[in-house]
Nucleic acid binder design. Structure first.
Lengths: 248, 248
DNA sequence: CAGGTGCTCGTCACTCTGACGACAACCTAC
DNA sequence: GTAGGTTGTCGTCAGAGTGACGAGCACCTG
């Protein structure tokens, strides 16, 4: 397409800051895992202005030629060592309150990541420490920026998503038992589930679990050894696995 | 918090374009409605570079002090006259491919809006025409930017959302019949539904529909007059209303 | 070997659903 | 007014899915 004078004018006008106010764009990652039966989120202690010393979700600025998804995975890998292929990554949404960052106008694109229990993360640049915090124990009022709202959205999305998709397997290793998967559901939903009905449901839903031919593994503290499964090919669970609804 | 020299330096550093590359941020609106039994989307014919003459979703740049949600509703109202209170508005997600806009780096936050059948929209500024297009008839390859992907995400989100939430009522007027609501489901899902089972399901799900005390209205071309309902207070449908699954 | 633990399979009552019959309440045509 | 068409609403029934268990299996430790 040849560029006429008219187009050239419009092209240049695109850089008029009055018409197109400049934003910074960041990614923030809600990285969830299940540790010791509890749903945990990865938080970093900031070492830079603003909110120095405060807790925040890992994340950072998107570079000029970087895709949003790539930026999220990149920041994640740099700060925690989580490789993309052992985790589930999905976009959570955009957060763009005009005053969410005191420095400047920032729109943050939040990502939700599920990973199995991982080796201890190491602090990256501009960060004092990195820690897993049970989501129940997070003091929302102490989180930097609007990360309390981002975290809440991530946890709620996770709870809903376990119902109709097989993503819970992303919290487990490559191979896992039905009980391990059940512990994931129990930790995310915060309710106990009947082992027998859970077993019937998960093994009976087509495409959810694929039995691993190899024999059953050891049992840690006694009990019949469990069969191993891998994640199946289904993208959606039919029928869905509904969490028990609290009665009023 | 007093601002030390150190903080001041960091504060100023925030405006270094090498560290914080400038983005433009836009909102794009997937406005869906049901007209003549078909799910339709509002598209505008662009009158400006780039994609002049091409079809696109309505939308525009977010202003410097404007909230994202506000910006979406504002552009929507300006271009179509849809008031926020007669429609359902939710964020769809962020689209930020580095080359989605040939002019500059743009991140677009897409919004999904459901509205009842509306009076004909009027073209706004920088727009040649505004038209309702059945989503089945949209030529995805001719849409500007990545609006084909945005539209596809919006339609898929709408289809999924009808299952577990009462948002389908947003496609109807203040008061509506069960049949009108059923036509919405049929148009969005593209499948016929059994009127008797649909009636049992919708009137039986707690919080979905509230009968209007006033007597039944007229029937247009014959048939027993239908009872009128308003939207109930439920935010989620329990149990969900699952769309019939295609068999393979 | 006894008893504990956790895995897996069964049973049963209940709810929800899809498919359909039947009647009610309106219309228009004759 | 009566016949016949159209749409709304209520009922029925068989089958699938679920919650709440019981019970046996396969490992452990003492």
């Amino acid at each position: 397409m040849s560029r006429s004078d008219e187009h050239e004018q419009e092209f240049l006008a695109a850089y008029d800051p009055r018409a197109f106010p400049p934003f910074a764009v960041t990614v923030d990652v809600v990285l969830l895992t299940v540790r010791e039966g509890r749903l945990c989120v990865l938080l970093v202690e900031r070492d830079t202005h603003p909110f120095r010393g405060g807790l925040a979700l890992p994340g950072g600025f998107v570079q000029a030629d970087e895709d949003l998804d790539t930026a999220a995975v990149e920041r994640l890998e740099n700060e925690t060592g989580v490789r993309r292929d052992v985790a589930h990554v999905e976009q959570l949404g955009a957060f763009g309150d005009p005053h969410r960052d005191p420095r400047m106008r920032v729109v943050s694109v939040a990502y939700l990541v599920f990973a199995p229990d991982l080796p201890a993360p190491r602090p990256g640049s501009r960060v004092r420490s990195v820690q897993w915090v049970p989501v129940e124990d997070v003091d929302a009022a102490r989180l930097a920026f609007d990360h309390d709202a981002v975290l809440a959205a991530g946890v709620e999305r996770a709870r809903a998503k376990l119902e109709y998709s097989p993503v819970a397997t992303a919290f487990c290793g490559e191979e896992f038992t039905v009980a391990e998967l059940r512990h994931v559901y129990e930790a995310v939903w915060g309710v106990p589930l009947d082992p027998r009905n859970f077993h019937r449901k998960t093994t009976g839903t087509p495409g959810f679990l694929v039995p691993v031919g190899s024999p059953a593994p050891v049992g840690p503290g006694g009990g019949r050894p469990a069969a191993l499964y891998r994640r199946g090919s289904a993208a959606l669970l039919h029928p869905a696995m509904l969490r028990p609804q609290r009665e009023d």
